[in-house]
Design a protein around this nucleic acid. Structure first.
Lengths: 132, 132
DNA sequence: ATTTGTGCAAATCGTTTGCATCTGA
DNA sequence: TCAGATGCAAACGATTTGCACAAAT
């Protein structure tokens, strides 16, 4: 898989790849992956986590999502789908597939073509106090 | 306007409000607004820019958009509309109104209600070299 | 042997905070 | 007068970078 993506299969890339892709679809931040690696006994530095996430993204194995300005989330599902964002817990979850259809998209500005359409449905707990 | 929002009309808030709202709909970052204020001869600190942007957002005068993890953009158009994001220039522009219809939205997870639906259409220059 | 990746620590960058000072009501 | 606002500089947290060392081909 790594070799196919033009990346040298190193210890840490293999380990991170396993952490990322063997548990189904995930939305993970660098910090969390770092922590998981640490707990799995994989010796890896935070710098390498970032490098790897970006290389994987460049290779099309991951997709970066911006929902939250403070953190970048990486999505292991690179297919065509959209997300819920739980505002309270700052969690990103996949929207069940086959839903959402974006209709009547306007033409992009002249000289531009669509690269991706992101739909993010922000949700909050129903019984939250709405005083803010 | 400020008073109506429960904010004291201070020199800097008035000045920033004018910069923000007298040029039609805008998508602006703290840094850029700071620069504009500086050039307009408005004495204001960056901290106050941030305070003001957040207060305005809290008061419903602005809306924060996250398209780019590095920066927060504030939109002076708080109505129901969506955006194009020009990947090359990191610019946010409004989508002409009356377009885009999001159909067949799945129900939010149990105990949650929709707070906002954001659609971001990322576009890139047509003649860009696609080698990356 | 060469090239590419990794780890560390320091550097960056946007943003936030603490606190003394000022200002609008 | 005095609560609330501002400015400064220091603090922060996520991410990036420079460079010496290690590992893959």
């Amino acid at each position: 898989m790594l070799r196919h993506a033009g990346l040298r299969p190193t210890r840490q890339r293999i380990a991170l790849g396993e952490l990322l892709f063997s548990k189904g679809d995930r939305h993970i931040s660098a910090e969390v992956l770092f922590e998981e690696a640490r707990q799995a006994g994989v010796p890896v530095s935070l710098a390498t986590i970032y490098n790897t996430l970006h290389q994987f993204t460049g290779a099309g194995l991951l997709r970066a999502i911006s929902v939250d300005t403070t953190r970048t989330y990486f999505d292991t599902n690179t297919g065509d789908h959209h997300h819920f964002f739980l505002e309270s817990s700052e969690e990103v979850i996949d929207m069940p597939d086959g839903f959402i259809r974006v209709e009547n998209l306007p033409a992009p500005p002249d000289g531009f073509e669509i690269s991706r359409v992101d739909v993010i449905v922000r949700v909050r707990a129903t019984d939250d106090d709405r005083s803010r």
